[in-house]
Amino acid sequence: MPKPEILDPQGKAVHGALPRLGFTGVTDVRQGKRFELEVEGEVTDAVLADVDKMAETLLSNPVIENYTVSVEQ
């Protein structure tokens, strides 16, 4: 997700479109990205640490974005 202090023009565009469709009461929209990674074998701590590294070095830009890593079976 873009960090809270970073302007999110895409989120603003979506926010602007909602009332035109009749959806009211939304006070803000922030748009982010979601990556789904399939990994071999068990999701061990080592695998998670690797994925965290991927998120930090390539998938996100920590200068402007925050990220979280979660596991789904």
């Binding site: 302007l7 023009p9 830009n61 200068v63």
Partner: peptide, 17 residues
């Protein structure tokens, strides 16, 4: 250069989109 961290900061979508 910003993504490479050779320069600080980042470039994001124009505010007027």
């Amino acid at each position: 250069l910003c993504e490479s961290r050779l320069l600080p900061g980042a470039l994001i979508r124009n505010d007027h989109r």
